[in-house]
Structures are given as structure tokens and as C-alpha cells.
């Protein structure tokens, strides 16, 4: 039990995918303009990450491993991820057209979100079991959502601040992300995994 909790703490805070491992920066910078949008994106990503880490684990353990096809892991993971993302896109399109519109290109881009493939591959390399894989994916997603939402709330404030013209937009966003990463260094060595 403690082990599972530690996995969550580790992925959410200590080894946060965005601020510590710097994975998934594309949607982090791209979809953090508005709080509502980022909440939608966070939910979509959480869904995709959890489901894809589950699916990729199943694919790897029950299809690739028995046949000794481990070398196919990357290509089959990409396949899995693409399907999950496509599926999510359809669901979002149906349930929230505006979110669909606002997420725009970032929704299909979850496919190429390195965090997703990263989670799948790290699951394998860490030799995580079934539950651990799901938790690892879920924790990574929660960590991503957590910083994305906080960051978007902060960006709404920065957007109306008197930022020098040359630093407006992504530049100050990157600086903020850097300062946030600095703050997250406080969690260093919190959990050793």
C-alpha cells in the first residue's frame, strides 16, 4: 500500500513529468492560456495517459512478451496510444464541441505527447506490474494536470501584467515554467524510488 502511495507522490511531485522530467511541454505551454481549457485538457490527458499505460502494459505482457516480440514495443505502443487518443478525440467532440474546438490541434497532438510514450516505456523499464503501471500512468497524468491547471491560473494573471513587450506570450511563460521547476526542486529527495 505504502509502495503505491509512494509511486503516486513520486510521479506527481518529486518526478513531476512536466517540471522535473520536462516531458509533455507542448500542451503545457500551448493549452494553458485559459483555466477552462486547461481543465479540459488535463482531463483528456489524464484519461489518455491512464488508459494507454494500461493498454500498453496489456499489449506488452500478453501479446509481445509471450511471443518474444519485445523489440516491437515502441511501434505497438504508438499504435495503442494513437487509438486511445483518437477515441478520446471522438468522445470530446461529441460531449464538448467548444472544448474540442479550443483544444484544436493539441488534442490529436496528445498522440505525440512524449509524456504518453514516456510513461509506457518507463513502465517497461521499471518493470512495473499491472497495478503499478496504471498508478504510474495515473500519477504522471495527475502531476501533469496539477501543474497545468496551476500554471493556467497563473498565466491568466501574467497575461494582464505589464510584461515587457518582447517577453510577452510564450517567453514569459517559459520563464514562469522555469521558476516553477525551481520551486519543485524543493521536493527533491522527498521519495527515493
Amino acid at each position: 500500500m505504502t509502495e503505491y502511495l509512494l509511486i503516486l507522490v513520486s510521479t506527481i511531485l518529486v518526478n513531476n513529468f512536466v517540471l522535473v522530467q520536462f516531458l509533455g511541454l507542448c500542451p503545457f505551454m500551448g493549452v494553458s492560456g485559459k483555466l477552462e481549457t486547461s481543465i479540459g485538457m488535463a482531463m483528456a490527458t489524464t484519461f489518455v495517459l491512464t488508459l494507454s499505460s494500461l493498454c500498453s502494459y496489456l499489449t506488452y505482457t500478453y501479446i509481445l512478451q509471450p511471443f518474444g516480440l519485445e523489440y516491437l514495443q515502441t511501434i505497438s505502443f504508438i499504435l495503442v496510444i494513437a487509438v486511445v487518443v483518437q477515441f478520446t478525440e471522438m468522445v470530446v467532440h461529441k460531449t464538448s464541441p467548444l472544448l474540442y474546438r479550443v483544444l484544436g490541434i493539441f488534442l490529436p497532438l496528445i498522440t505525440t505527447n512524449c509524456a504518453v510514450l514516456g510513461v509506457a516505456l518507463q513502465n517497461i523499464s521499471k518493470q512495473n506490474g499491472f497495478v503499478e503501471s496504471i498508478l504510474y500512468g495515473f500519477g504522471a497524468a495527475v502531476g501533469f494536470s496539477f501543474v497545468l491547471i496551476l500554471f493556467s491560473a497563473m498565466r491568466e494573471r501574467i497575461n494582464v501584467a505589464d510584461v515587457p513587450t518582447v517577453f510577452k506570450g510564450s517567453a514569459i511563460g517559459m520563464i514562469t515554467a522555469g521558476l516553477m521547476a525551481l520551486a519543485f526542486m524543493g521536493f527533491t529527495a522527498l521519495v527515493q524510488i
Partner: peptide
């Protein structure tokens, strides 16, 4: 941070992390 983290004192990081969360808390 003091008890389990890597740094002896956690005031700076604690404040920065909560700065980070302040806009959301405000809402």
C-alpha cells in the same frame, strides 16, 4: 521539506510552491 526533503529548511520552496498555487486559490 524539513522532515523528508533534500534541503534543511523549506521556507523558500514552500513559499514559491504556494505562490504558484495562489491564483487558483484566489479563484
Amino acid at each position: 521539506i524539513r522532515s523528508w526533503g533534500g534541503y534543511p529548511d523549506g521556507v523558500a520552496f514552500g513559499v514559491l510552491l504556494m505562490n504558484f498555487a495562489a491564483p487558483l486559490i484566489d479563484y
